[in-house]
């Protein structure tokens, strides 16, 4: 199913404009992530698509050729995985997953067949009769997913589906979820504030900020070619190189950098993995912090610009705190963004 939103906005009764006028199209079978910090409007957008919030007048929501704007959630045929999972504590695992099928008034044998299929897929057969309270976080997440897809919804919506889990489990389930979603071959939208999660699961990421979609594209596009300082900062934590630009030269406190194009009226950003500690580098700074993170070191260098410049160092002999180091940044690793793009 293709989802199409036109001119969709939401103003809450207290006047908060949670979502500014937004257009968004999600193609059949596409998995799209809405990524952004809390309060950016991503959950509001998801809830409008689900039918749990009523959008402002003038908004239109299309499921293929059906205009569903006025349809209540129970008639939209969407599957939803809630942040808290919202599993019914008065029902067993099987009854939870079968609830949507029961609402469709399917014959019992059809319900059973469908239930078995979905529970196999999500590896839940052995928990069938268990109470919800007897499940671990990861199992609950799978039950919530199974419950949402069992009635074969037209669209699957996931609201921060992994945020209730602890960090170690989250990473394992992230990959599992990505595989399952592709197995279902369903159009899916999921909301997250975690860029790793968005990139691991989604075909396309829509970065949101201040109630609008700031940029939408494949994870690679967003990472390599951010269109605004917000996206550059939020996706991949790009650092602003704060210095004086004259033509193709950027002058920092710790030395000069060559740019590949004219940098006038531009803001220049760089990511930590592109900051290389190299004896031949043009910049000079002093090591302030060294953090060992297993596969690499994170080195904080002061003196190059007013704030600390972070470098990822993956060699064995990390510099010591207090040492003076030379730093190199390749011209094509620098991200140039026009000044006025500082907003969202």
């Amino acid at each position: 199913m293709t989802l199409r939103l036109t001119n969709t906005a939401k103003t809450f009764p207290d006047g908060t404009r949670a979502l500014l006028s937004t257009d968004l199209t999600v193609d059949k079978g596409e998995i799209v992530s809405l990524l952004g910090p809390s309060g950016c409007g991503k959950t509001t957008l998801l809830r409008i698509i689900a039918g749990l919030e009523t959008p402002d007048p003038g908004s239109d929501i299309w499921f293929d050729d059906d205009n569903v704007t006025a349809l209540p959630v129970e008639r939209r045929k969407v599957g939803m995985v809630f942040q808290s999972y919202a599993l019914f504590p008065n029902m067993s695992v099987r009854a939870n997953i079968g609830y949507g099928l029961k609402m469709q008034k399917l014959p019992k044998d059809k319900i059973d067949a469908r239930l078995n299929e979905v529970m196999d897929m999500c590896q839940l057969q052995e928990y069938s009769a268990r109470a919800i309270t007897a499940l671990s976080g990861g199992q609950r997440q799978r039950v919530a997913l199974a419950r949402a897809i069992a009635p074969r919804p037209r669209l699957l919506l996931l609201d921060e589906p992994l945020s209730a889990l602890d960090a170690a489990l989250r990473e394992a389930l992230r990959d599992e979820l990505a595989i399952l979603l592709r197995e279902f071959q369903i159009t899916a939208i999921f909301v997250t504030h975690d860029q790793d999660e968005a990139m691991a699961i989604a075909d396309r990421v829509a970065v949101m900020s201040g109630g609008r979609v700031a940029q939408s594209g494949t994870p690679e596009e967003l990472y390599r070619n951010p269109k605004s300082t917000f996206v550059a900062g939020f996706v991949g934590n790009a650092m602003h190189l704060d210095g004086k630009i004259k033509g193709k030269t950027l002058t920092l406190n710790g030395g000069k950098l060559r740019l590949s194009t004219d940098g006038s009226d531009q803001n220049i950003y760089v990511r930590a993995e592109d900051v290389q500690i190299d004896a031949k580098g043009p910049l000079t700074g002093q090591v302030e912090t060294v953090t060992f993170l297993g596969s690499h070191y994170r080195v904080g260098i002061k003196g190059i610009m007013p704030s600390v410049l972070t470098s990822i160092y993956s060699g064995y002999n990390a510099p010591k705190v207090g040492e003076t180091v030379k730093v190199m940044i390749e011209p094509n690793a620098l991200i140039l963004l026009p000044n006025q793009a500082s907003g969202a």
Binding site: A50, L52, P72, V73, E74, R75, K77, V78, G79, M80, F82, S84, A86, L87, F88, Y99, G100, M103, Q104, R147, A148, P151, L157
Partner: peptide, 10 residues
Amino acid sequence: TLEEGAASLG
């Protein structure tokens, strides 16, 4: 949320 869950299931 529980009710929203049930509503999303029809």
